[in-house]
Simulated assay, not measured.
Amino acid sequence: MDDALPPRAYLVVIDGSAEARVALRFAARRAYKTGGTLEMLAVVEPAEFVQWAGVQDAIDEEARLGAEALLHQASSDIVEELGLQPRLTVVEGDPAKAIRAALAERPATAALVLGAQPGSGGPGPLVDYFTADAGQMPCPLMVVPGGLDDAALDRLS
């Protein structure tokens, strides 16, 4: 019998927002401190329909390249600071559905880590969506307050 468990994997959604940066910092430190892995996911929402296929393809490719650049920039900071090499994934589609699909494909996910928007405008659409259905999640949902500074994140993670 093989008792070896896969390492804890923390899945964090990267969208360029300040709260996503906070969630990434928290998730990276949790992964590092627990001997786990970090998975960074960027979701490219399909562009509104454009009449000409060539234009549509160019718009989609530009969005995908932007998401890849965002992931690479964010991951380089993690590699430099912690030496942790995250898994980077870019998918296209509805963000909530894409995240659910990613969780279904990754049964070793220890937690989905999302950052909540600070302020009175609500925590954000993904936090709203996943907290409303938290009881049906295949893993814990960690919601990190987007207003935390680096010192607080380091202390809490």
Rank of each mutant, 00 (worst) to 15 (best):
M1H: 14
A4F: 15
A4K: 13
P7N: 08
R8P: 12
A9M: 13
Y10C: 06
A18I: 13
E19S: 15
E19V: 09
E19M: 14
A20S: 15
R21F: 12
V22F: 12
R25Q: 13
A28H: 02
A28G: 07
R29F: 09
R30F: 03
Y32E: 12
E39R: 15
L41F: 09
A42F: 07
F49K: 06
W52A: 11
A53P: 05
A53V: 12
D57F: 05
D57Y: 06
A58G: 06
A58D: 03
I59L: 15
A63L: 15
R64D: 03
G66Y: 01
G66Q: 02
A67E: 00
A67P: 00
A69F: 05
V79E: 05
E81Y: 04
E81K: 09
L82N: 02
L84M: 02
Q85D: 12
V90E: 01
V91K: 10
V91R: 12
E92T: 15
G93W: 08
D94N: 14
L103Y: 03
P107T: 02
A110T: 03
A111V: 06
L112G: 01
Q117T: 13
Q117P: 05
G122V: 05
P123W: 04
P123R: 04
P125D: 09
L126G: 05
F130R: 07
D133Q: 14
A134E: 14
P138L: 04
L148Y: 11
L153T: 01
R155L: 13
L156Q: 11
L156P: 05
S157P: 01
